[in-house]
Amino acid sequence: MTMPGMAGDQRMAMSIGGGAYESGSGTARVPAAEGPMRGQMIHAGGWMLMTHGYAWGVVTDQGGPRGQDEAFITSMAMLMGDRDLSDRVHLQLTSMLSLDPLMGPRGYPNLFATGETADGRPLVDRQHPHDLFMELSGRVDYRLGGKDSLFLYGGPVAEPALGPAAFMHRGSARYLPLAPITHHWFDSTHITYGVVTAGYAGPQLQLEGSAFRGREPDEHRWDIEAPALDSWSVRATWTPSPHWAAQVSHGRLHSPEAQEPNADERRTTATVSYAAGGLTAMVGYGLKAKLPGRALPAWIGEAAWEIGRHHTLFGRIEHVKNDELFPDPADPLHDRPFRVTKAEGGYAYRIALAGPLGIALGGTLAGYAKPAALDAAYGNAPVSWTLFGKLAVGL
């Protein structure tokens, strides 16, 4: 997944099992044709190290009465190390950090996004920032013979086996500057304080289960929160060829929302990913069932097409049923579920810089479909635009 013309030593496959897949975030898989994670590879003694990172500079104008315009920066830096401990045992250590907390607890504007809190109040029409510590994890694989292995993964900050690879690690979302509004249906558990995952990894099938802390990160983004193992999930991933990866997962999360401490959640996701010839795509279905409460479905489809050395076309369409758009109990629309569709498309121009560094310059335009009951709050036909520059190691 490097830009055409980049040196081969800027690519790195971190998985040990081989087969028709590459590693995504946590223990998730993506199609092998998507290519290994982009970054800079370094050999140090018996270790194979990979550095990866990016910084987005973004200006967005989220449309309608509840939309806001704002300039902001998001960032991530990752260091991953692999080595064999013996003929059968392989070790991988991962650290991932972000300076997103500098944005403050309210994050950035993102129309119809909900989830987590700021200053003790629910975030609505805004995307929360990532924590400083996005991942501090380890993984040990024990080779059974051939390309089969058993593995144990986890850490104080890690990602349970629930949902697809997180959006910032999917090729289909690589140039989309804002988080999906379905984030809390598909991949919000990618930062979890306390995870233990055990599984079987074969070249075409992976089966795994996790114990983890169900509560989402709080609004204090600089610390490491107390780990716990009060929730569980299971996931099966099938990679029948280098071009396809399908996963289905289910979990029960204990008290995920700070604003609803007495409510648990059952979460189910199913996604299919495809990659070939510079095209990466994913479609998926997610269901949040509040306990007690209603079941809320969501759909997502996203794709990116890298054309030659410089040009990328990309887009995302989402449909979600959300009952968190009006958190004030005094509001007549409080706790009512509304179906919202967001369609966003854009273009990026990719430029190789020095060594592994590259930059993508581009923009997006988004429109929304919603019920008439939301017109007073959101306007008749809100339209949002975003301009960005993404500086990355292994763009």
Rank of each mutant, 00 (worst) to 15 (best):
L102V: 09
R106D: 15
P101D: 01
L79W: 12
L102Y: 10
D84V: 03
P101K: 00
S86A: 08
M78A: 07
M103H: 04
D82H: 05
M103C: 11
H90V: 10
V89C: 01
P101G: 01
G104K: 02
A77Y: 08
R88T: 04
H90A: 07
A77I: 07
R88D: 07
S98L: 09
D87S: 04
D87I: 06
H90C: 04
P105V: 00
S95F: 08
P101R: 01
M96Q: 06
Q92M: 13
G104T: 04
S86D: 09
R106F: 07
R88W: 04
G107C: 12
L91R: 05
D87K: 05
L91C: 08
L102R: 01
L85H: 01
R106M: 15
D100C: 07
S95C: 14
M80S: 14
R83T: 14
P101L: 00
M103Y: 06
H90F: 07
L79C: 05
G81K: 13
M96F: 11
A77C: 06
D100A: 08
L102S: 03
L79N: 12
P105A: 03
T94I: 15
L93T: 11
D82C: 07
G107H: 04
M96I: 15
H90S: 09
L99E: 02
M96W: 11
R106P: 12
Q92P: 11
D84Q: 05
L99R: 03
R88K: 10
L91N: 13
L85T: 00
G107D: 05
S98I: 11
A77N: 11
M96S: 09
P101V: 01
L97R: 08
M103W: 05
L85N: 00
R88F: 02
M80E: 15
L99Y: 02
G104Q: 03
G107S: 10
H90G: 13
R83Y: 08
L79Y: 13
M96L: 11
G104N: 03
L97A: 14
A77P: 08
Q92T: 14
D84T: 00
G107V: 05
L97T: 10
G81M: 08
Q92G: 12
M78I: 11
Q92K: 14
A77H: 12
L91D: 08
P101Y: 00
L85I: 03
P101E: 01
L97F: 09
L79F: 10
P105N: 09
G104P: 02
G107A: 13
